[in-house]
Amino acid sequence: MAGFIIEILQIALVIGLAPIFAGWVKMLKCWSQGRSSPSILQPYRNLLKLFSKDIILAENASWIFRFTPYLVFGTGVLVSAIIPLLSTDLPLALTADVIVLVSLFAIARFFTALAGMDIGTAFGGMGSSREMMIASISEPAMLMAIFTVSLSCGSTSLSRIVEVIYSPASVIKPSLAFAFIAFVLITLAETGRVPVDNPATHLELTMVHEAMILEYSGRHLALIEWAGMMKLFLFISLGVALFAPVGIAVSTNPAGIPLAFVYLSLKLGFSGIVIVLIETGLAKMRLFRLTEFLGAAFLMATLGMLSFFMLE
């Protein structure tokens, strides 16, 4: 029973705290660029505003366009039930291992890309085409990074991986270091951060994710935005869980949960700083330079796997 309470707590945590994390990143970014920042609660206000607005649908939008926001949000919620954030003892963790996790993000992307093509504008198709191109390289790279971790832990189950890495017997392995670098690069690509995509722009030459969702409005847009914040939150916490599981509760003892929460907030706060440093230090890449960026991630992950077989 305690497991289910933690499960619900964790879902509520992701849904509730994802906007704060997005606000935190935004705030840091403003500071690092010498601007005054909006409040950390601003994403909530944006969502609230969007939820209360009417929807304008394009004339030939089909049911796919209206179905996609709910689906994208739904997969986000499902993923937040699976990633061990506070505790590794999650009753729904059996539902999905890391490979399923990657595919859950893929299904959200599949439908977002379809929604982009549904309206029949050049922007939507452009965004879909670019997004699928980026995904076709970043997704295998992500799987390779994850395979490296799961090979060295002998499991693809997330809870199990976290337990193995967190156990006192584990040591720092070169394969995990390579996988970590690959994972950071992929996180930037998958969550649409700066060298790959710019979440703050609506410029046709650079848009990827924004181009697909350009025609959304009202509660549809709110759901998609919220799911986007959750995706960022979940990717960071997945990285944190895989590579730095310090402080996570490994037993059903509820006393460990508050401590795990404190640790998680600290780790997320720190990751926000790292993201902002990367985003501020790098410029947005040309679309066709991305193959090098993502290829580097793929290479890192492959090197990690090779070093697992050669050295460990």
Partner: peptide, 12 residues
Amino acid sequence: NPGKIRRGHVWD
């Protein structure tokens, strides 16, 4: 309490 849904032209 759903908001209204309007159909409109695509932004060109």
